[in-house]
Write a protein that binds this DNA or RNA. Structure first.
Length: 601
RNA sequence: GGGGAUGUAGCUCAAUUGGUUAGAGUACCGGACUGUCGAUCCGGAUGUUGCGGGUUCGAGUCCCGUCAUCCUCGCCA
């Protein structure tokens, strides 16, 4: 090693030892006859100092600038009390330089490596290796590594076998857009990158692997968000001869442990379960944030004949009226009330009606239309208190239900009810098996087409498929989905029936999933599993809103890698080799290329 | 594909109603200084105001287009 110690480990106990440190120059304080350098590496920061007694080392150190990589040798000296730095673990000592060499100089920096001000995200991505020197990014990556270690221990201890599945595999339509890879030896044919190893892990069960796990990279060519990258990482699990609870227990015990060991918060080891229907009814979403209350109440029955046209009109048209009650501890000014509709406009909700509950009478546009019976009905249903407010959304169910969820979350933010130190886990279970696709007038798989129906709902497959519930489950952490899975169909005939309901004919199923359906015919064990998005989970545990910082080399919202310049054009010879011909003007002709503006800087 | 925000020195930002030479901090370069830890002090250099077009006597500022980044709707079985 070029060093005897790291920059984070010397203490007063090392006084008098001769040591060698390597690191980046984080700061430089030149006093003329005396020069202080702060040397930084992954482990910490240590102050080194020059003294006139060693002029050669002093002259060499004098040349260095920020972020140069240097190596210094000298004796550890305990600092006088007045000169100790209490904010730093190595602050009791310093190293008096006897020898000093520059290992690597640095050009002036294009991004801020130290200090509280962080450079723009664009520059941070372009110069990711410099951002990575910042503690917040380094800490996130170290946290990911610890999570992986905990996961590995947990899975191995429970007899799971880690199996790698291919990155190049067959495109199986449905779901997200595939990333495609052209085949050279099979002109006109393509591999797809996995959206998840779903079919493969089920086939592993048919192969008798019994308990599989993998930290798997997944790829989906869809538009991005703060919590979505084109490639992301899942903890993938599949188990044979299990019932739903068996899968949930494996996953929840792991996530509870991660919350404890990563976030340092102790939470109950048994995670509560809530049917999908209840989650949607009470919280307007299938992933409720249970760190705060403010439940949504359906008041359609109470207000359906109301003199207020907005309410009765919605009810008569078959819609719903949903309300959230605010106690006197959550006051809203007229200005804030007027800003509420903007919070639900995304969902197509037209407005938010409100009434103030006062001793002398209710006020608000809707108040004067409410009969005494309606007022007492609302008071009881919503638990209204004097000094409080009732908020109402009215309209078609498919608008008002999700809008009520958005409104609740908006209020949670507004009143700062989302305690960042709290971790509320919840299993949402009994999801519907199918979702109605309005555009194409057919059923879609709500989870995926291999999800098993609830046994007691199987008869409904023929009579009322839309009301069939599934053995599917999502793990929700503070209002974010961090894992999801299902018990799978292991019977060939049931699988065929589901495909039929999804409008996938026998021929088409054969063409798309033939190899999988064939596998189900050769003794498939009952099985089920789960997958957890580790990027989001890591971000949640670190209290981050976006996942880029828990990924070493993330991409932009247009799926570009600003550091390497991917995606890029390729040599025409490569296209010829792949039997590909482009039908678009090349970027060279349009003069545009991703990252252009910044790379030319 | 739609909506919104942002783009000024290497970096973080400022610049009044459209007004004449676009500033500050920091980094960088030079100098002073023996106890700093955001060192301090003195001096210096640094600009295609993202790009293209337009309006105007005059544009960082107004208009149109475009590119990039971020947020978001659609999308993500």
């Amino acid at each position: 090693m070029l060093r005897t110690h790291t920059c984070g480990e010397l203490r007063a106990a090392n006084d008098g030892e001769r040591v060698t440190l390597c690191g980046w120059v984080q700061n430089r304080r030149d006093h003329g006859g005396l020069l202080f350098l702060d040397l930084r590496d992954r482990y910490g920061v240590t102050q080194v100092v020059t003294e006139p007694e060693f002029p050669e080392a002093g002259a060499a150190a004098d040349r260095v600038r920020l972020e140069w990589v240097v190596r210094g040798t000298g004796v550890v000296r305990t600092r006088p009390d007045a000169n100790r730095n209490k904010d730093r673990s190595t602050g009791q000592i310093e190293v008096v330089l006897e020898e000093f060499e520059v290992l690597s100089a640095s050009a002036p920096l294009p991004v801020a490596v130290t200090g509280e001000e962080r450079s723009s995200e664009e520059l941070g991505l372009r110069y990711r290796y410099l951002e990575m020197r910042r503690p917040e990014v380094r800490n996130a990556l170290e946290t990911r590594a610890r999570m992986n270690q905990i996961i590995r221990e947990h899975m191995i201890a429970q007899a799971f076998v880690e199996v790698e599945t291919p990155i190049l595999l067959r495109s199986t339509p449905e779901g997200a857009r595939d990333y495609l890879v052209p085949s050279r030896v099979h002109p006109g044919s393509f591999y797809a990158l996995p959206q998840s190893p779903q079919i493969l892990k089920q086939i592993l069960m048919v192969g008798g692997m019994d308990r599989y796990w993998q930290i798997a990279r997944c790829f989906r060519d869809e538009d991005l968000r703060a919590d979505r990258q084109p490639e992301f990482t899942q903890l993938d699990i599949e188990m044979s001869f299990v019932e739903q609870d068996d899968v949930l227990e494996v996953v929840e015990s792991l996530v509870v442990r991660l919350v404890r060991e990563i976030a340092g918060v102790e939470i109950p080891s048994s995670v509560r379960r809530m049917p999908y229907a209840e989650a949607v009814a009470r919280y307007g979403t299938d992933k409720p944030d249970l760190r705060f209350g403010l439940p949504v109440v359906d008041v359609t029955e109470i207000l359906q004949d109301c003199a207020f046209g907005v309410f009765s009109g919605a009810a008569k048209a078959g819609g719903r009226i949903r309300a959230i009650a605010l106690g006197p501890e959550h006051p809203l000014s007229r200005k804030k009330l007027d800003a509420l509709p903007a919070a639900v406009a995304d969902r197509g909700a037209r407005g938010v009606a409100w009434v103030r509950i006062k001793a002398e009478g209710w006020s608000g546009a809707a108040a004067k239309h409410l009969t005494d019976a309606e007022q007492s009905g609302l008071t009881e249903a919503l638990g209204l208190q004097e000094g409080g407010i009732a908020l109402f959304l009215a309209g078609p169910s498919e608008v008002v239900v999700p809008a009520s969820g958005d409104l609740r979350v908006h209020l949670g933010k507004l009143f700062e009810l989302r305690d960042p130190a709290r971790y509320e886990l919840l299993w949402v279970v009994d999801f519907p098996l199918f979702a109605w696709n309005e555009d194409e007038q057919r059923l879609d798989a709500a989870h995926h087409p291999f999800t098993a129906p609830l046994p007691e709902d199987v008869p409904l497959l023929d009579s009322a498929p839309k009301s069939v519930r599934a053995l599917a489950y999502d793990l929700v952490l503070n209002g974010e989905e961090v894992a999801g899975g299902s018990i799978r169909i292991h019977q060939h005939d049931v699988q065929s029936r589901v495909f039929e309901l999804l409008g996938i004919g026998a021929d088409e199923a054969q063409q798309r999933f033939g190899f999988f359906l064939e596998a189900l015919r050769y003794g498939a064990p009952p099985h089920g599993g789960c997958a957890s998005g580790l990027d989001r989970l890591a971000a949640s545990l670190l209290g981050l809103e976006q996942i880029r910082d828990v990924i070493a080399f993330p991409k932009t919202t247009s799926a570009a890698d600003l550091m390497s310049g991917a995606p890029s054009t390729v040599d025409p010879a490569q296209l010829v080799e792949l039997s590909l011909q482009l039908d678009v003007a090349s970027p060279a002709e349009t003069g545009n290329e991703p990252g252009d503006g910044i790379r030319s800087a």
